[in-house]
């Protein structure tokens, strides 16, 4: 299984990095998250019984690691969890857009955010996301459309 995991890691490295970067400010932090997640996954690979679940399991570890890193950072800078930024490293976003985006995202839970990140930005299927977040596929779908509507209203309508 270790060999298969290594292959999965290499295949998905860009997506892993982009998702990680969506939680933190800098390239170095994102790379750290990828490395820590990869190590965690490689150490625990015995837990995975079927090859088809490797990818979603890997993304679950990545998202949990990223959220942990984000929280630690918030604590270091003594800001509350509620002002965690959404994709802070994304350059070329106008300040007004960023404000609107942060406001919109602050209404979303970790899972709702993760669904947006994985489906809207990474084009993962609802089925994969359901496995990653351990939700039913229907929950993922309805949550996605609800969250997207919120975002669209604030982004496209507001500015």
């Amino acid at each position: 299984m270790r060999e298969e995991l290594i292959a999965t890691l290499k295949e998905n490295q860009t997506a892993l990095y982009r998702v990680a970067l969506g939680y933190v400010h800098t390239e170095a932090e994102a790379l750290d998250i990828v490395q820590i997640s990869a190590e965690k996954a490689l150490r625990q690979v015995g837990q995975v019984k079927e090859k088809q679940y490797l990818k979603t399991w890997l993304f679950r570890i990545l998202i949990n690691t990223a959220i942990d890193a984000q929280r630690k950072q918030a604590r270091r800078h003594e800001i509350g969890d509620d002002v965690l930024t959404f994709m802070p490293a994304l350059a070329g976003v106008a300040p007004e857009t960023r404000l609107a985006l942060e406001q919109a995202v602050s209404d979303l839970s970790d899972k709702e955010q993760a669904i947006i990140r994985l489906h809207f930005f990474e084009d993962q299927t609802f089925g994969e996301i359901a496995l990653t977040l351990q939700l039913s596929e229907n929950t993922v779908k309805t949550t996605y459309y609800r969250s997207l509507k919120k975002l669209e209203a604030l982004m496209d309508g507001g500015i």
Binding site: I6, L9, K10, Q13, T14, Y17, R18, L21, E27, L31, D32, V34, Q35, A38, E39, L42, A89, L90, A91
Partner: peptide, 16 residues
């Protein structure tokens, strides 16, 4: 976004 592919490959190899 720019992807630092080389560094990314390096950290994954380090983990391996």
């Amino acid at each position: 976004q720019d992807i630092p592919t080389e560094k990314l490959t390096a950290v994954i190899n380090q983990a391996i």
